[in-house]
Design a binder for these strands. Structure first.
Lengths: 340, 340
DNA sequence: GACTGGCACTCGCTACAGTCGAGTGCCAGG
DNA sequence: CCTGGCACTCGACTGTAGCGAGTGCCAGTC
């Protein structure tokens, strides 16, 4: 389709102005604010073409133009270069993440940092258990028929579950079990554990049979079935910036969606190495979020990925800036994790 | 001061109608909807007195009356009886809480349940470490100079911290340390531990000195200084019910306040045994929440209190219903905790 | 052939006047 | 002390008019 360079320039100018002012932009204002080197009339002709192709639209017959989702998409794909972060931003990131004492702390600081820098809603997934390995399993006797199982993953995550045993158990038995499960499961990817757990049940000494069977059930639940993905969220107040102009006046559906962990996971959890995803408006699968855009990426120590993070905001967002920030924060978090 | 019974009846009627309809209520509508046994004119006279005393006010000269914060306060203190829960609600509570597998699960289910039943924003504090005892301390060797310290509290909370040792340590030393700290600290209230930890440092065998000193620092941080209070939140989408009429149109300050854990803790964390607090509008210390009311109470196994929970909504809320629900949920949660 | 200036047209926004009606305060009478 | 009646207030709504930003189109120019 005949989109020559100038038409693309016009589209870029429209997106930039609209993001900045939040008002439909007209041909005259455009030539004033940008050096396009042509007259408003020419721009109008270009706009007509852009509108025909579905990149922009007019909210009302007598108003300026506004980018469509498709327009933003083209902008993101071809018209924007990533803004480098300012030194101040870099410093902010470093200062924020240094001094985190444990995983909870890292995640909390990260999500707040992201929300603050992008001035949008930030979402950070805790390192996924599915992508973790077992570092250590601990059995803590609570009573003769109750144990607490604590699983420590290499990503720093810690999960615990209470185990109700069918028969009493001695301290020595607990020691045996502890050694046994650590020998067999320690260092293994969580995903690989089910057959190993099964094997344990089969070969354990007869006296420990019932206890081990119960323990195995809980182990499997903890290690794979529950697959509890945790999520941290911050910056919901940023949804109220821009008056009620974005989101056609109702935050309702968005707040509802943000309360569902499943939905959040869908948003930021499906990541591939070295990619950064931008989902714009209608491209979102979740109906409640059709008025928003999501910028997300994976993070992890080195080149591996252990979880996702991202931000959510109005389709009218500063894509270049947001993309740069999300990418930078993900990288820093990965570095911090690598140090553990 | 002459607030006779009928004037109180009028106030009650105004509160009930306004809560139900969200519209200023006039004298005529009042006598129609309630059996007051007098004419609108009489009611008008009573209203004039109530207004003079500051219990109600007129949004506009030619509009009906609306309760003031003071009016709600009087209503809550003297005019409302607690609504008993419906059997359906009781069943909902039980069904919701049964089947929770661990503390996280209990807290999450509780907060969602509260939000759903009251149709408001729900806040639940995790069992406070300050009110917990040490059940078990675990040391997991990560490398020769790194340990992971895991603290399991009797309330089910689990905290972990990484310890960087100044000098390498052997597996046997770890075993010794583990036994030692559990002997001395196990079963103790977290608040009582600092002198005990200090004593440990002084008397430990010389070879373990440096390790124990480092460990002590982290122990103190974990047990008392950090005092990390965790909070769960749900139902923020409920803030958008009632159009933008409540909260004079801006959710901003409220969402901002809800993001600050410190603020939430202030809201629901300061509880005394067997009390239920209702803070109405201006009575709130936090400026951002002057347009909201908070109903909160403590919960815990038996009669002890380990944390707080509550809901936040517009001053125009169904106080009797909300109070009943908050109280009931707190009781059920206490029961669930008692079973562990 | 591409760009430009000019011009008529559209239509949302604002201001203003007029009407309506819910609700009030007050007063005289029971 | 309560009641019915009455004049009054004032916000909500409606319809009209003028303004102006912005457009589409067309004829003219480079």
């Amino acid at each position: 389709m005949g989109l020559d360079d100038r038409k693309l320039d016009v589209l870029r100018a429209i997106v930039e102005d609209y993001v900045a002012t939040q008002e439909p932009v007209g041909s005259k204002a455009l030539v004033e604010r940008h050096q396009l080197g042509v007259s408003p009339a020419t721009v109008r002709n270009d706009m007509a073409v852009l509108e025909e192709e579905g990149y922009i639209r007019q909210p009302h017959t007598s108003a300026g133009r506004v980018p469509t989702d498709r327009g933003y998409r083209l902008f993101v794909d071809r018209l924007s270069r990533v803004k480098p972060l300012t030194p101040a931003e870099r410093r902010a990131i470093e200062r924020f993440l240094v001094g985190a004492v444990d995983l909870d702390d890292v995640v909390h600081r990260t999500v707040r940092l992201l929300a603050q820098l992008t001035r949008q809603v930030a979402v950070v997934q805790y390192p996924s258990l599915a992508r973790s390995s077992v570092r250590h399993l601990e059995l803590v006797p609570i009573s003769t028929t109750r144990l607490m199982l604590v699983m420590i993953a290499d990503t720093g995550r810690v999960e615990q579950r209470l185990v109700e045993l069918p028969t009493p158990i001695t301290a020595d038995d607990v020691t045996d079990l502890r050694r046994l499960i650590n020998e067999r499961l320690g260092g293994k990817k969580l995903a690989e554990t089910p057959p190993l757990v099964q094997a344990l049940v089969d070969e354990v000494s007869p006296g420990l049979g019932p206890a081990m069977t119960t323990l195995a059930t809980v182990l499997l639940e903890t290690l794979v079935e529950r697959h509890e993905e945790r999520i941290a969220l911050a910056g919901t107040a940023n949804l109220t910036r821009g008056g009620l102009l974005d989101f056609q006046g109702s935050l309702r559906p968005i707040l509802e969606a943000l309360e569902e962990e499943v939905i959040l996971l869908k948003l930021i959890g499906e990541v591939e190495p070295n990619t950064l995803q931008v989902r714009i408006g209608d491209e979102n699968e979740i109906d409640n979020l059709r008025a928003t855009s999501v910028v997300s990426t994976g993070y992890g120590p080195g080149t591996t990925i252990v979880g996702g993070l991202g931000v959510l905001g109005p389709t009218r967002m500063d894509y270049p800036g947001t993309i740069a920030t999300v990418r930078a924060v993900a990288r820093y978090v990965g570095d911090v994790l690598a140090q553990n």
